[in-house]
Design a protein around this nucleic acid. Structure first.
Length: 426
RNA sequence: GGAGAGGUGGCUGAGUGGUCGAAAGCACCGGCUUGCUAAGCCGGCGUACUCGCAAGGGUACCGUGGGUUCAAAUCCCACCCUCUCCGCCA
């Protein structure tokens, strides 16, 4: 959520930033109009209430003294009706204003390239060399099915399309990667491991920005519950301190969690239908930071670097992109996508997305801190990034480490976790 | 699932219709005092919106949302949450 005061004072800058995003149709003037109406009503109501409070005290005094208060009482009866009327209008205007504010995306950072779609994303760095094959490399589906470690048909039978069953070393590979990633982030990068709920309520979803605008992307729990399956552990992690005023000394806070992620993938019918690149359920290790505003962009660089370490240890080639204005997500001011090389597709594909959401989520989640000696609390800045998407890491390992006989060599750093040097016949 | 208790400021906890944004204690901050540490005394100490150059003022908030009333932390209704006991269960 944007700061209404900031919109009021910088309407042009806000409009310009929003216009450079994809599909942004925000009527700033309507919002400012509603804001003015609300403030006028609010002010009027405050004054009438002041009058009412004064009179009510007088009534109390008269009654206590055994005197007649009926004249004042009937006057107050009318005043109460007027207040109620204004209150209803004020509440309605405020609700409408809030509704509008909740669907406005974050302001973009000046370093974000302006552009309509991913073609305008900026390459920050390319790390590692894609391997050259002296045979035709297969994709992870052919490799995995031949090895007997994936069963997409079973996934479809048990649930529906976009679900997979991993078996044997395939299942163990996911578990190994989760432990590998968490060990590095907690042991070397200073993150505190969290095991969060995999379902959250609407307030949490609103805090990080999934609701109210993107409910179609989520799975809602049926029945008399206000619960949704998390699309990422970012939601529980970022909301962990919602509503609190944190002591400055606690910042920055680094959290890491593994969770399954559930996404309806509405609107991506026909896209990435093959294999497990785009599933309704996938594992991810997520990194979240809460920090002071002045450090958040440094923290973003460090966050991306933390995610990159995983790819480096696994010796997988990748590149880092800064998403352009049209490609940057709703809550983010700036996003780096880390893309791993996939020989099966002959392309770089996203394996991590690291964003600085500045105070956007903090305002929604009412997530603040107080500086030593300061009177007013301030909103923290929140960041999140995948460290990494586990399913896609499995794909990358299979495709990059495949051998002519269809077996998969396991990156050295991961071997102790998997308890094997190779998947498939040696 | 059955029975009961309860949700008040950072914490403990008083307050059952009017002068309560809320006693008291603890914690915290400032000052004074005391030859150290400790203790004592005085003062301060929630959040948001709003008016004002400021000093300062106004309004709202006692789990959430409604209702009754001139007036609600206090009465009524619904919901959420926590705790205890019984049952069931990984």
């Amino acid at each position: 959520m944007l700061d209404l005061k900031f919109i009021r004072e910088n309407p042009d800058a806000v409009s310009a930033s929003l216009a450079s995003r994809r599909n942004s149709t925000v009527d700033i003037d309507a919002i400012l109009g509603a804001d003015e109406t609300r403030r006028k009503l609010q002010h009027e109501m405050d004054q009438l209430r002041a009058e009412q409070n004064k009179a009510s005290q007088e009534i109390g005094r008269l009654k206590k003294a055994g005197q007649d208060a009926s004249a004042l009482l009937s006057a107050m009866h009318d005043l109460a009706a007027r207040i109620k009327d204004i209150e209803e209008r004020s509440t309605a205007t405020e609700a409408q204003l809030n509704e509008s504010l909740l669907v406005i995306p974050n302001l973009l950072h000046p370093s974000v390239p302006v552009g309509a779609d991913e073609a305008a994303n900026r390459v920050e760095r390319v790390v590692g060399q894609p391997r050259t094959f002296d045979f035709e490399p297969k994709d992870h589906v052919d490799l995995g099915e031949a090895l007997g470690i994936f069963d997409f048909e079973a996934g479809a039978k048990l649930a529906r399309a976009r679900f997979n069953v991993s078996k044997g070393l395939g299942a163990r590979l996911e578990r190994a990667l989760i432990n590998f990633m968490l060990d590095i982030h907690t042991g070397e990068h200073g993150y505190t491991e969290i095991l969060p709920p995999f379902m959250v309520n609407s307030a949490a979803m609103q805090g990080t920005g999934q609701l109210p605008k993107f409910s179609a992307d989520l799975f809602k729990i049926a029945g008399d519950y206000d619960l949704w399956l998390i699309p990422t552990a970012e939601v529980p992690l970022t909301n962990l301190h919602a509503g609190e005023i944190l002591d400055e000394k606690l910042l920055p806070i680094y959290y890491a969690a593994h969770s399954p992620c559930f996404r309806s993938e509405a609107g991506s019918y026909g896209k990435d239908t093959r294999g497990m690149l785009r599933q309704h359920q996938f594992n991810k290790v997520e990194l979240v930071k809460l920090c002071k505003p002045e450090t958040s962009f440094d923290e973003l660089d460090k966050l991306a670097a933390n995610a990159e370490v995983i790819l480096q240890r696994l010796e997988l080639p990748y590149r880092v992109m800064t998403l352009c204005s049209g490609d940057t997500g709703f809550s983010a001011a700036k996003t780096y996508d880390i893309e791993v090389w996939l020989p099966g597709q002959n392309k770089y594909r996203e394996i991590s997305s690291c964003s600085n959401c500045t105070d956007f989520q903090a305002r929604r989640a009412n997530l603040r801190f107080r500086r030593a000696g300061a009177k007013k609390p301030e909103y923290v800045h929140t960041l999140n990034g995948s460290g990494l998407a586990v399913g896609r890491t499995v794909i990358a390992i299979l495709e990059n480490y495949q051998q002519p006989d269809g077996s998969i060599l396991i990156p050295e750093a991961l071997q102790p976790y998997l308890g094997a040097e190779r998947i498939g016949k040696a």
